[in-house]
Structure formats: structure tokens, C-alpha cells
């Protein structure tokens, strides 16, 4: 059964593992769960995050300086297995995962019951021709990104591949953390995309930073993912208040 819901609007938070401190993840996950976030994306830091804006770039470099590594990240999640009950998604660029070893990584993800993986630099074509078999072996569903400009047929194809997770809608053509207004044109396109996704939930991310924007997004999609705005709050130790204000 798909752990990502379509019948109730979802809110997800993106956390860079190892930021601001090497061992911050535990507290963050438990706090977010307590506050009622529906699922959490745990970011795997990478030296060259090409689709990310300055905020996530910075958290990524600090996490790496702190000594965060993929193996350690998985160990930290392992230690929390009995305490975190909401779905966890791992999100990161492909290279650290490939170096860890795709098989080894997926087998650990399976053991940790990771609900889905988001690998922004892996396209649906590459996945289907080169990587699908190994992902299938460990039954880890992959979540792919679409944008308002993605052609309809491709949206359907992505929705089908993501039927056991969700489709990640990048709200506008930009890197993470760039503010923009959800105007009428955008929201009607979002609604159209939602229809094309059929039974697969459609969650909106990149640039969602306030309750107001969240509510606006809820009108046309099944949920929202918040990264940059949350990490900015973490930087000034205001994240609890931020999430409170958001939900």
C-alpha cells in the first residue's frame, strides 16, 4: 500500500542530515513527528548540489564539514527505527549513493523501511533503462520530479512509475528556495497535473515558505514539501515555532 496519502493534505519537511550539528537529525525527526508533520525528507549532503539554492548548499557543506557521511546517516536512522513512525524519504544526488554501492544502499533502505527515494539527477529514462531492476529487487519506490512545463504524457509516465510513492512537483523552473507567487496560471496547471497523476499523490515543493502559500497550494495539489524555509529557521533555532506556524 502506498504510504503517501491522497485523501488528506500532506505536509512534509526537508532536513539536511548533519546540519547544524552532526547529531542533529534525531532531535529534528522526533520533534517534527511530534508536531504532526506527515512525512520527512532526509537530505543526503553532497559537495556539488547543482539544483539547490544557497541555503541548502550551505547546510550541505556544513553537514559535510561536520563529518556527515551516507553510512553514518543510515546508522543514525537505524538508531531511531522504533521511535519514528511516519514515512521517511531519502533525498540526495546520485553520486554518493553510487559510491556507497547501489545494492548496499538499497538493502539498508529496505531494512530501514525507507518509504521512497528522490534522486534529482536521475531521470525516469535512465532509471527505467539502467537502474530499475536493482531498485525493484529491494522494492524501494523512486519519486521523480516534474515541473509545470513537463509534457502531459511524460507526467502520466512519471505518475505510473511513482505509483507506490508520489510525484514531486517543482513549483516553478528554478533551483530550491526561490520565492514566487502561485498565480492563477500556475495553480490551474497544478490542478491539471494532479488530474494527470491519477491515483498517485502530487506534492509541491521548491519555494514553499509560509502557511499562506501552503494553503494556496492545497487547493490544487495533495501536499507540500518545505525545505529552504525550514532550514533558515533551523539556522536561527526557530524551527519549532516555524513548523507550528506552518501547520
Amino acid at each position: 500500500m502506498n504510504p503517501f496519502k491522497k485523501d488528506k493534505k500532506q505536509v512534509s519537511i526537508f532536513v539536511t542530515a548533519g546540519y547544524p550539528k552532526l547529531d542533529s537529525l534525531k532531535g529534528q525527526l522526533l520533534q517534527l513527528q511530534k508536531q504532526g508533520v506527515d512525512f520527512i525528507e532526509v537530505g543526503i549532503p553532497f559537495s556539488d548540489p547543482m539544483a539547490d539554492g544557497p541555503v541548502i548548499q550551505e547546510t550541505s557543506s556544513i553537514a559535510l564539514e561536520n563529518g556527515m557521511k551516507l553510512g553514518l546517516l543510515l546508522d543514525q536512522l537505524d538508531a531511531l527505527r522504533n521511535e519514528v513512525h511516519i514515512p521517511l524519504v531519502l533525498m540526495g544526488y546520485l553520486n554518493p549513493v553510487l559510491q556507497f554501492g547501489l545494492d548496499a544502499f538499497l538493502s539498508r533502505c529496505q531494512a530501514l523501511s525507507i518509504a521512497s527515494l528522490i534522486l534529482p539527477d536521475l531521470s525516469v529514462e535512465l532509471y527505467e533503462t539502467k537502474y530499475k531492476e536493482v531498485f525493484g529487487k529491494y522494492k524501494i519506490p523512486v519519486t521523480f520530479l516534474i515541473t509545470p512545463l513537463t509534457p502531459n504524457e511524460r507526467v502520466q509516465r512519471v505518475a505510473q512509475v511513482c505509483q507506490n510513492s508520489f510525484v514531486y512537483l517543482v513549483g516553478q523552473n528554478s533551483i530550491t528556495g526561490q520565492g514566487y507567487a502561485i498565480n492563477e496560471g500556475l495553480s490551474s496547471r497544478y490542478a491539471e497535473l494532479k488530474k494527470l497523476c491519477g491515483a498517485t499523490p502530487l506534492f509541491l515543493g521548491f519555494g514553499i515558505d509560509s502557511k499562506e502559500k501552503k494553503e494556496q497550494a492545497f487547493k490544487s495539489v495533495d501536499g507540500v514539501i518545505i525545505g529552504t524555509a525550514y532550514l533558515k529557521a533551523v539556522k536561527v533555532e526557530e524551527e519549532v515555532k516555524f513548523v507550528e506556524g506552518l501547520l
Partner: peptide
């Protein structure tokens, strides 16, 4: 270098054991 993905292609790459470039 070892095979890895940077700047949009899979190629030989100088990286550490954790896949950081």
C-alpha cells in the same frame, strides 16, 4: 578517478570514498 556522476554525466571522477568530489 572512479566512475561517478558530476555536472550531468557519468564519468571518471576524482572523489573520496563517500562520493564527495
Amino acid at each position: 578517478g572512479t566512475p561517478g556522476v558530476l555536472h550531468g554525466s557519468l564519468t571518471l571522477l576524482m572523489q573520496d570514498a563517500d562520493g564527495q568530489v
